[in-house]
Amino acid sequence: MVCSRCKMVVKAVFESMGIIPISVELGEVELKNDIQENQKTELLKNLRAVGFDLIDDRKSKTIDKIKTLIIDLVQNKNNDLKTNLSEFLFQHLHQDYNTLSNLFSEVENTTIEKYFINQKIEKVKELIMYDELSLSQIAYSLNYSSVSHLSNQFKKVTGFSPTHFKNIKTIKRKQIEDL
């Protein structure tokens, strides 16, 4: 789940089954009581019908938490990162970064850093399309050291300069879950 609408949809699925969640957050639903196996099967079917899935195993939960933290950081906190990404993840997950990095790479076939960069570039695309901020304002808001750094990273990931991307506007942004 990556937005408030996602949380609303997931909450509605639970409630439609008579399961009232205590809280629904990005990537996590807290329930007062455990659910029975037949409810879990029905819940899984209902969640998949609206594009979601249940995550039960520890590895998948950890990967999901990493993704959720990164998406939340980029999308909602304007990348207000006071430390480096590895320290940020350690502070939130209380696990060694090397362990997290190895697990993420093994399961996702990409590094945490590349995933983070792809999230930032998608945010840059979004902000370019809105055409409300200058490139230097975008670079600053996403914690890039300079416009040049943002431009180089943008071109490396997309194959286009930010200016060229802005001019063609026909390139569709990717869905967050497709990154």
Score class of each variant (00 low, 15 high):
57 D>S: 14
179 L>N: 06
107 V>R: 09
51 G>D: 03
131 D>S: 12
66 I>S: 00
70 I>A: 00
104 F>S: 00
103 L>D: 03
112 I>L: 05
169 K>F: 09
81 L>N: 04
89 L>I: 05
36 Q>Y: 14
12 A>N: 13
67 K>A: 02
104 F>G: 00
53 D>L: 12
70 I>L: 05
9 V>W: 03
16 S>Y: 13
164 H>K: 15
88 F>S: 01
73 L>K: 01
94 H>L: 12
95 Q>E: 14
152 N>D: 13
137 Q>R: 09
7 K>F: 02
53 D>A: 10
59 K>W: 10
32 K>T: 11
34 D>K: 12
107 V>F: 05
21 P>G: 04
132 E>Y: 07
47 L>D: 03
64 D>F: 13
93 L>F: 09
113 E>W: 09
37 E>C: 03
158 T>C: 11
106 E>H: 04
127 L>N: 02
147 V>F: 07
156 K>P: 10
119 Q>S: 10
104 F>I: 00
83 T>D: 13
17 M>H: 13
21 P>E: 06
39 Q>N: 11
140 Y>M: 07
115 Y>M: 05
45 K>G: 04
21 P>W: 05
56 D>R: 08
29 V>E: 06
143 N>C: 08
83 T>Y: 13
170 T>C: 06
43 L>D: 07
167 N>R: 15
62 T>H: 01
104 F>Y: 02
163 T>S: 13
123 K>F: 08
158 T>F: 09
149 H>W: 12
107 V>Y: 10
93 L>H: 02
81 L>G: 03
57 D>H: 05
88 F>L: 03
55 I>F: 08
32 K>D: 14
132 E>M: 07
124 V>Q: 01
88 F>R: 00
142 L>W: 00
146 S>I: 12
82 K>I: 11
99 T>A: 07
4 S>W: 13
60 S>W: 06
115 Y>A: 07
129 M>C: 06
69 L>T: 01
30 E>A: 05
59 K>Q: 14
122 E>A: 01
82 K>T: 13
7 K>T: 07
28 E>P: 00
90 F>L: 09
20 I>N: 11
116 F>Y: 15
96 D>P: 02
50 V>I: 06
179 L>I: 15
70 I>E: 01
18 G>K: 10
27 G>V: 05
129 M>E: 14
91 Q>T: 09
81 L>I: 15
41 T>Y: 14
66 I>W: 00
36 Q>P: 00
